[in-house]
Design a protein around this nucleic acid. Structure first.
Lengths: 148, 148
DNA sequence: TATTGTTATACTCTATAACTATA
DNA sequence: TATAGTTATAGAGTATAACAATA
């Protein structure tokens, strides 16, 4: 026991819990992607989800997704050709190109997201009422762990 | 409410929870990998972790990891050259080559795993005692959701 | 002949460096 | 000259097809 109450790394049950929860999250994440990423490759879905919030330039997307500008260019070119993203010149700065989600792109994102949630709901169907209730209350805590 | 008690997809709060928990798991998973996969690429770590349980042939690893035999061959060749994996002819079947974890490989897996758990423990340090207790009890349920 | 491992070749996603156009 | 976008080229990981060795 150290003098810092908010540094609980020395508690063996916390180490066990860290491992258990990390493994569960990684397995759930892997299986969700495995079951649901048939329509859209992971890096394509990721970019479309970013454009859902607001239109972006290629450079902005590259920085957010932490890939190089040419890599993102390749991805966005593919998405434009697939009809999921549209390009528009910036009227204020002729160097920039604004990328936006098309209706088709928005629908594709929603389909993938619905598919992913359906997988989770299928898993929930194996739980008891008590387990569902516990998970419900722990949900916010898990969100806090995941948050920045 | 339908006639099937184990098909709760029509409950709106379950749909919300499915989305919340899925997102939290995917974010945690992504951040764990982003923070911890500096030493070993994901597909390298994955193969080493499989060899931790038992020695395997290249074909077995390819099937487990769902990649082609030539792809796995490339990965295992790299791991052998890095000193993490050793090759041995099968005395019973001259066609087969048995791949095993070296001590160095075992140590690398443990380092990555410890690093990943440390990230989780850092996040736990932001939680209250009540939240930690709730997470502790929900841990087994999450494991059940993640299980096959 | 069937199976295991390997090599040959190609495609995709990633990167860095160089080039073009606009500010 | 600085910045956004783009093009050129290369490296890593994946795949399928073909080949070699063993059962």
């Amino acid at each position: 026991m150290t003098s810092q109450p908010s540094q609980p790394a020395s508690h063996p049950e916390l180490v066990t819990m860290a491992n258990d929860i990390r493994l569960a999250c990684m397995r759930i994440s892997r299986r969700v992607r495995f079951e649901s990423d048939q329509e859209l490759a992971p890096h394509h879905f990721s970019v479309l989800a970013r454009l859902e919030d607001a239109p972006r330039t290629n450079s902005e997307l590259a920085e957010i997704e932490r890939v190089s500008a040419p890599s993102m260019k390749r991805t966005t070119t593919h998405l434009v050709e697939a009809g999921y993203v549209s390009r528009a010149d910036d009227p204020l700065d002729g160097r920039q190109v604004i990328l936006s989600l098309t209706e088709e792109g928005r629908a594709a994102v929603e389909r993938v997201r619905r598919h992913r949630d359906e997988w989770m709901l299928d898993r929930f169907a194996t739980l008891t009422e008590t387990e569902l209730d516990l998970l419900q209350r722990a949900s916010a805590v898990l969100g806090k762990v995941a948050s920045k």
